[in-house]
C-alpha cells in the first residue's frame, strides 16, 4: 500500500507554541480580531471581576475547542452553528454553577456577563475558524492562547480603571492617603462605561504604533 506514516507534530513544537503566543499581540482577539469586546468593557471596572472573567473564558474556550475539535468530522454542515452553541452553552452553565458555588459575591458582580460568554464572539469565532478544522491538541492550545490574549487586555484595562477610578488595586488601597490629603481625588469617570471604550481606543493606538503592520489603510 505504501502509505507513509505522517510525522506526528511534537507536543510543544514551535508551530504549536505560536498558537499560544500569537494571540497575545499580533493576533489579539480584542484589539486585532475585534472579538469579545462586550465583556471586555463591562467587567473591567475592578481587577477581581476581570480576572475571574478571564479564567472563566479560558476554561470555556479551551474545553469547547477540544470538544468541537473531537466532533469536527461528525457535525453536519447545516447544523454546525447549533452544535457549537450547545457545546458552549453547556460549558458556560457548568462554569456558572461553579462560580455561584465558590465565589458567590464575584458572580453577582459579573451578573449576566457570565451567561453572555455564550454569545462572546471569541468563542464562536475560534470554534468556526480553528477548532472545526484542527486536531484537539492544537485546538486546546489555540483556546488557551486566545484566552490569554483576551485576559491580558482585560487586566490592562481593569488595572488603569481601578487605579485611577478608585485608587485601589484588588480592593487594596494603593494610592497613599497623603495624596488624598493634598487634594487628589479619584477620577470617577474611569469607573463609568465610556472611559472603558476610550481606554481600549488608546491601547489600540499604542499597539498599532508599535506594530506598524496592523494599521488599516
Amino acid at each position: 500500500m505504501g502509505a507513509e506514516k505522517k510525522e506526528r507534530e511534537p507536543m510543544f513544537s514551535p508551530k504549536n507554541l505560536k498558537l499560544v503566543t500569537k494571540p497575545l499581540n499580533l493576533n489579539n482577539p480584542i484589539t486585532v480580531q475585534v472579538l469579545g469586546i462586550c465583556s471586555a468593557l463591562a467587567v473591567t471596572a475592578k481587577l477581581k471581576p476581570a480576572i475571574v472573567m478571564s479564567i472563566s473564558v479560558m476554561v470555556v474556550l479551551a474545553a469547547s475547542n477540544v470538544v468541537v475539535s473531537l466532533l469536527r468530522n461528525g457535525i453536519p454542515q447545516r447544523i454546525r452553528i447549533i452544535v457549537q452553541l450547545v457545546v458552549i452553552a453547556t460549558m458556560v452553565i457548568l462554569v456558572d454553577q461553579v462560580l455561584k458555588a465558590f465565589v458567590y459575591d464575584i458572580s453577582k458582580q459579573l451578573s449576566v456577563f457570565v451567561g453572555l460568554i455564550i454569545t462572546n464572539c471569541i468563542l464562536m469565532g475560534r470554534l468556526e475558524a480553528f477548532a472545526m478544522g484542527n486536531k484537539p491538541w492544537p485546538a486546546f492550545l489555540d483556546g488557551i492562547g486566545n484566552a490569554l490574549g483576551y485576559g491580558l487586555i482585560l487586566i490592562i484595562i481593569a488595572f488603569f480603571r481601578e487605579l485611577f477610578g478608585s485608587g485601589t488595586l484588588f480592593d487594596y488601597q494603593v494610592i497613599p492617603q497623603a495624596l488624598y490629603d493634598i487634594g487628589y481625588k479619584n477620577n470617577g469617570l474611569m469607573i463609568l462605561p465610556p472611559m472603558a471604550l476610550i481606554t481600549v481606543g488608546v491601547i489600540i493606538w499604542i499597539q498599532r504604533n508599535r506594530n506598524r503592520e496592523l494599521i488599516e489603510k
Binding site: T31, V34, L192, P193, P194, M195, A196, L197, I198, V200, G201, V202, I204, W205, I206, R208, N209, I215, E216, K217
Partner: peptide
C-alpha cells in the same frame, strides 16, 4: 494612522457614551 478605523471608532463611541 494608528487610530484609523478601529481605534477612532472606540474613542468616538466613548464620547457618544
Amino acid at each position: 494612522p494608528a487610530l484609523r478605523g478601529l481605534g477612532i471608532t472606540f474613542i468616538i463611541t466613548g464620547l457618544m457614551g
